[in-house]
Design a protein around this nucleic acid. Structure first.
Length: 486
RNA sequence: UCCUCCUUAGCUCAGUUGGUUAGAGCAUCUGACUGUUAAUCAGAGGGUCGUCUGUUCAAGUCAGACAGGGGGAGCCA
């Protein structure tokens, strides 16, 4: 057996470290730096912290030492000793060092210094080896685990909704077509259009933009379900908050109303933060200090004031602000910001809230996450439940968006329209073909119940917890317009 | 898709009102030193200044087009 190593995280962890002193260990990993021709900072990705391997002078031949370069992989055998130097409590005094894989120092792109995120983005296959991305992706892993833990503990069923779908009724965005038809010379029908009956599925198909509709079907049998999978949008969005391929979590719960839905979403987000704060302290501490350093470069008025860990703690300890859309509009209209005409987009009842409006509410007015409910029906999707007793022309739906500082919309959800007649009327109004959605309407025909759900953009959550400002830096290999490397 | 900024050594960046041989730190190589923490010291190599076109006696510097990237907006998660 080759692998009898101890993971660096375990080797360095408080109680284990002391008790290991005097014992022989094998560690394997990649060289971060080699200082003074004696001290190897070795990392294996289990933690942000490096273990220091000491190659005492004169005990190793030059040929081996020359090959200990940044990026090289080594296997070191040695004895755990209390460190003579500062900066670490224990270190490994090497008795044997084997080079597993050389790394030409002249060609290896990563250096023991700060690189720009833009540069590292172009070296996406190597950036995992940096402190920043190491921490980001360990936290991403923890968040994914915490998602399943949260729902599993609450008796939710993890429903795998399809990635290829034929439904295009939700209108959540532009879709990627899935086809095996040839690009040129595809069969045409009598009308001169491409004949999709000749296609693999016998109809036009796309990559999913949301698992919600299928999720609702599951909730109508299992009561509580969630999905967690990749989602695709072919929108030409070039921003720090959008990806063409991203991961989304969509719980759907029978018998929940909008308030239950909000409570679930708030508990969920807090659970995710809590889990990471308990399990990724080193990573958060590193990202915290990284952000603090970055903030120092900013002019005072642009600084956020709260450190990353402070921010997460604050969110954990305080309730999310809950306001209606109508209240939000009033707050905006009464703000000095509005009176001084500082908004680019006008504010009046009926508009969709613009980024600048959301940012004002979250970052200036409330300074905490805000849940906005009761949006105008005209700007929301067909499946959202119509609120009763609305003034004519001011119909609202039981929608809710959670807005987070620095990210904007992190959750979008609603109580669904469970009344068949109302749902059909709404679909007709919005020109959604009832026949194609017959399977969906069946849930309202046979034992319909009030139910609600929401979607949380996983990458946006990772952004929020890590403080990374560009969404391309929280997914391993980002897919964005004109960019599908690796 | 729109607005805006950027592109100079492997990396991060400087480069004056257009002017002769384009600079620094880190990295690399050579040597010295040796309990270092992005080690230090001395020296060396390394650039068709994003691409193309134009203005000019002369372009890294001015203008235009294109490409790539950043930030913002829209669409949304």
């Amino acid at each position: 057996m080759f692998n009898q190593r101890v993971k660096i995280k375990q080797l360095l962890s408080g109680t284990d470290a002391k008790s290991a002193v005097g014992s022989e260990v094998v560690v394997m990993g990649w060289v971060r730096t080699f200082r003074n021709n004696q001290f190897i900072a070795l990392n294996d990705g289990s933690t942000n912290n490096n273990v220091q391997i000491v190659a005492s002078l004169g005990e190793f031949n030059e040929a081996i030492l020359k090959r200990i370069t940044t990026g090289a992989s080594i296997k070191a055998t040695g004895v755990v000793v209390e460190s003579l130097g500062k900066g670490q409590t224990v270190e490994v005094k090497a008795t044997k060092i084997e080079i597993l894989g050389d790394s030409d120092a002249e060609k290896y792109p990563l250096q023991p210094k700060k690189h720009s995120l833009e540069f590292l983005r172009e070296k996406a296959h190597l950036r995992f080896r940096t402190n920043t991305f190491g921490s980001v992706f360990r936290i991403r892993h923890s968040l994914a685990f915490a998602v399943h833990q949260f729902f599993n503990d609450r008796g939710f069923l993890y429903l795998h909704t399809p990635i290829i779908t034929s439904s295009d009724a939700e209108g959540a965005g532009e879709m990627f077509r899935v086809t095996t038809l040839p690009l040129e010379g595809a069969a045409k029908n009598e009308a001169g259009e491409i004949d999709f009956t000749q296609d693999f599925f016998g109809k036009s198909t796309n990559l999913t933009v949301s698992g919600q509709l299928e999720g609702e079907l599951g909730a109508m049998a299992f009561s509580d379900i969630y999905t967690f999978g990749p989602t695709f949008r072919a929108e030409n969005s070039n921003t720090t908050r959008h990806l063409a391929e991203f991961w989304m979590i969509e719980p759907e719960v029978a018998f929940n109303d909008l308030e239950d839905n909000m409570n679930l979403a708030e508990d969920f987000i807090k659970h995710l933060i809590d889990y990471v704060m308990k399990h990724n302290q080193d990573d958060l501490a590193f990202l915290d200090s990284r952000l603090a350093e970055e903030e120092k470069q900013l002019p005072t008025e642009k600084r956020s004031g709260l450190g990353l860990v402070e921010k997460l703690k604050f969110v954990l300890e305080n309730g999310f602000e809950r306001i209606t859309y109508t209240e939000a509009i009033d707050i905006l209209l009464n703000s000095n910001h509005y009176k001084k005409k500082k908004f680019t987009y006008d504010v009046k009842w009926g508009i969709d809230l613009q980024s600048e409006h959301e940012r004002y509410l979250v970052e200036q007015h409330f300074k905490k996450p805000v849940i906005v409910t009761g949006y105008p029906a005209a700007i929301k999707a067909f499946y959202m439940r119509m609120n009763d007793g609305c003034e004519a022309g001011k119909e609202t739906v039981a929608a809710m968006d959670i807005l987070a500082p620095g990210i904007g919309e992190i959750v979008g959800g609603s109580q669904r329209e469970e009344r068949l007649d109302k749902l059909e009327a709404r679909m007709n109004e919005m020109h959604i073909p009832l026949e194609e959605m017959s399977y969906y309407l069946d849930t309202r025909r046979f034992g319909s119940v009030p139910h609600a759900g929401f979607g949380l953009g996983f990458e946006r959550m990772v952004q929020f917890v890590t403080g990374m400002t560009n969404i391309r830096d929280v997914i391993a290999f980002a897919r964005t317009p004109k960019n599908c490397e690796y």
